[in-house]
């Protein structure tokens, strides 16, 4: 039995994915399916809420990595919000804050889509 689940919510044009439980090499396929579903539905403004995400391994991080360029090419973004400190630490260890927009609150992530729809964090080409 999987100890991970993804909930779907909408806030205007933004799809919010509520991650719950432990994201590892076994459960990563569930996150992959959720993001693929967003893409298939052309819902590419995605906020991932990690408030209830208790654990992440590199397999979970790899899902974000595999989709971020495609989602941005489609005019959207995957913004990540409300991570618990121990989970944020794993993102941070791999330098993900340089590639992903990671914020404290879900509302902040949603509002960023309204003000800067395609905003990206540093991509190595900033002036």
């Amino acid at each position: 039995m999987s100890n991970f689940s993804v909930g779907f919510r909408s806030s205007g044009p933004v799809t919010i994915l509520d991650l719950n439980g432990e994201l590892d090499a076994h459960t990563a396929s569930e996150l992959e399916a959720a993001i693929q579903r967003c893409k298939d539905d052309q819902h590419v403004k995605i906020v991932v809420n990690g408030d209830q995400l208790q654990y992440i391994s590199s397999a979970g991080l790899g899902v974000f990595m595999a989709y971020i360029e495609e989602v941005r090419e489609a005019g959207g973004d995957i913004k990540i919000a409300s991570l618990q400190p121990k989970v944020f630490n794993v993102f941070d260890l791999l330098g993900f804050p340089m590639l992903f927009d990671i914020v404290d609150q879900e509302a902040e992530a949603v509002s960023k889509f309204e003000s800067h729809p395609g905003a990206q964090p540093g991509n190595g080409s900033e002036s």
Partner: peptide, 10 residues
């Protein structure tokens, strides 16, 4: 679009 390869680094 690589999804793996961070495990050993971590």
């Amino acid at each position: 679009k690589k999804s793996g390869g961070f495990g050993v680094h971590l």
